[in-house]
């Protein structure tokens, strides 16, 4: 089945909206927990081959160490979500989320890595939940895997670059936490063989109204 440009554009639009809704709720929860105002900016979604999408990570490579959380999902459609935070941005996020009375600047250590894993897990799960909710399908998530280090070391130790021709739903999210800018990059890896199922689901969803 060929997917025409118009169908792809509206599909990406729907995905952006569903991811936006999912993240909006997650960020609101974080905002309440931390008693901080967090603003979510308009996300961007593109459909790219994995190799092209990964080239966007060059800024992360230059930024030094980063935290990567990978989460597999399966069900009617399957794929993988990958969330990137540079070390600096993840520390900005954690410091921004801490209550005033805890606001001694933190160093990146095992505890912080655990916190980031929890936070990113919540974010990725929230997005996957929103996607399954909007498309009316059941998606199962595996336990997330968290890595901390330089991008090239991480990518060398995972199957990140396998199946490089897989298409990626590439989502860039940025948000502001208490006057601190923190930027995250979230990628949805959608294997080619289930891409048509995803589009089919989206087309069905578009006719619900």
């Amino acid at each position: 089945m060929a997917i025409d440009a118009e169908a792809q554009a509206i599909s990406l639009d729907l995905l952006a909206e569903s991811l936006n809704l999912g993240l909006g709720q997650v960020i609101e929860e974080l905002s309440e927990i931390s008693n901080s105002k967090i603003e979510l900016h308009v996300p961007e979604v593109n459909m790219l081959p994995k190799t092209e999408a990964l080239s966007f990570t060059s800024a992360l490579r230059d930024a030094g160490k980063a935290i990567f959380v990978q989460q597999q999902f399966s069900g009617e459609i399957s794929g993988e979500a990958l969330l990137f935070f540079s070390e600096e941005e993840s520390l900005n996020l954690l410091n921004g989320l801490l209550q005033d009375n805890e606001q001694a600047l933190i160093e990146f250590a095992a505890t912080e890595e655990e916190m980031m894993l929890d936070l990113t897990n919540v974010a990725v799960c929230g997005v996957i939940y929103a996607l399954s909710n909007l498309l009316g399908i059941r998606l199962n998530t595996e336990l997330p895997r968290c890595e901390y280090g330089h991008f090239d070391d991480i990518s060398g130790s995972t199957q990140l670059l396998d199946n490089a021709e897989d298409m990626i739903l590439f989502l860039t999210i940025s948000f502001t936490v208490v006057k601190k800018n923190s930027r995250a990059q979230l990628m949805f890896f959608q294997p080619k063989d289930t891409l048509e199922k995803l589009y089919d689901r989206i087309q069905k969803r578009l006719s619900f109204g």
């Binding site: 554009a9 509206i10 639009d13 729907l14 578009l206 109204g209």
Partner: peptide, 14 residues
């Protein structure tokens, strides 16, 4: 709305 999809839904419901 920046989302075409969201505008479609709102229009349809209105």
């Amino acid at each position: 709305d920046d989302s075409l999809y969201a505008r479609m839904v709102v229009k349809d419901v209105v």
